[in-house]
Simulated assay, not measured.
Amino acid sequence: MATHPNDLSAVRAPLETAHGLPNAHYVDPAMFEEEKHAVLFASWAGLAVAADVPENGDAVPLEFAGIPLLLIRDRAGQVRVFENICRHRGMILVSEPKKIEGAIRCPYHSWCYSTAGKLISTPHVGGAGHNTHPAIVKDDLGLNEVRSHIWFDTVFINIDGKADPFEVVHADLLERWREFDQPMYHGGADSRFDLQVETNFKLAVENYCESYHLPWIHPGLNSYSRLEDHYNIAAPGKYSGQGTLVYRQLKGPDDMVFPDFANLSDKWDTGAEYVAVYPNVLLGAQRDHCFVIILEPNTQTTTTEHVHLYYADPKVSEDMRARNAHLWRGVFEEDIFVVEGMQRGRAAPSFDGGRFSPVMDGPTHCFHDWVAGCVQAHRTKAQAAE
């Protein structure tokens, strides 16, 4: 029979003998609630991309694991994340994407905030015609800002504010991909799309981490970038994924290709890498374009995949962009029946989390071990606080 969901010792065992996470981690609402705090809120999770707010004053309301947030590019051009609520009575401030022309105005009592989150106006707060009151100190009542960091144009957030700095947590990955620390240009409306998937977000991560499934799920890719051309990437506690030694550029009419990123080493001439940055960001790096996938965990059994494509040049062929988006959408859609099938499989009461191929599944086991470690740490802190 399956192990008790609170017993994670088998998950944290060595790869050769480890089991995957118990079923409850994919189907139980109570476990989903626990993982919100242990996994999503305590780490650097992906929220959006900076390209979602391209101009100063652009604001987009978002929800992350039930929390109302506001992504905004302030007047100085800095991308910020705030709780999308007024400090007066908790009213939602912005209900749809918009340009903030003046101030962020609460629709309830018209308290107003600057795009940097400072409370600047409290009309009639001291009574009719009195816009101040000694008890209401504006400097103490700015918007609640959520700790954020931008890398690879991805807006990472740390909800509980206690994680080590992003640059410390992901120093290895930043060094690994330092050649891509250069301008990246979002392809625009035709280079973004969403996929609604009936699965727990973790299964999307697990599937993305490994190349084991390529011959059967992605026969088109496998026809030129074969299973034997791939290698595992595993950085315990941080990220994992796969790389390929055979990357084939998309070609258009007259053998047109996308411009390459500048000054890349020879490794990228024919290679590419695909990593899952824990807990919910999937990245792809290639010589001529990159992609970012933000996994939005809606419920324990539903996920939205937000896909964004980036290029080395802001002016690439519209036809080529469309071809590329169509190609990647097809690849990512091929994975849907797999992650949805695994989700349905978690209803089997005797499933014990499964076993891993000691050769092929290292990156996936790496993610399971990290999740289990986060949950154990959260439980230890909760017990100590009792």
Rank of each mutant, 00 (worst) to 15 (best):
S265R: 09
S317P: 07
P253C: 01
V307M: 10
H289K: 03
A312N: 10
R321F: 00
E340H: 05
P236S: 11
S265G: 15
V275P: 03
V316E: 06
N324D: 14
G271Y: 02
C290V: 06
D254R: 03
R287P: 02
M342A: 10
A322M: 09
P349D: 11
D260I: 03
A347M: 07
A347V: 04
A348L: 14
E305H: 08
Y239H: 14
P297M: 13
E273P: 04
L309R: 02
S265C: 11
T302Q: 14
W268M: 00
V246K: 10
I336C: 01
E296Q: 13
M256S: 12
M256L: 15
H289P: 00
R323Y: 10
D255N: 10
Q300A: 15
G243P: 07
K315D: 14
G341E: 03
Y311M: 03
D260W: 01
I294T: 01
F291Q: 13
L295Q: 11
V307C: 05
D269Q: 10
P253H: 05
H289A: 02
S317L: 06
L282I: 13
V246R: 07
R321S: 10
T301V: 11
E334F: 09
R346H: 11
I336R: 11
E333P: 12
G243K: 09
G237Q: 14
G243T: 01
E305M: 15
E273I: 12
F291T: 13
Q249I: 03
G271N: 13
Y247E: 12
A276Q: 13
I336E: 02
A348K: 06
A312W: 05
S265I: 05
Q286F: 14
E318L: 11
C290W: 02
D269F: 03
G330K: 08
Y311F: 15
G284K: 00
L264E: 13
T244M: 12
L327D: 11
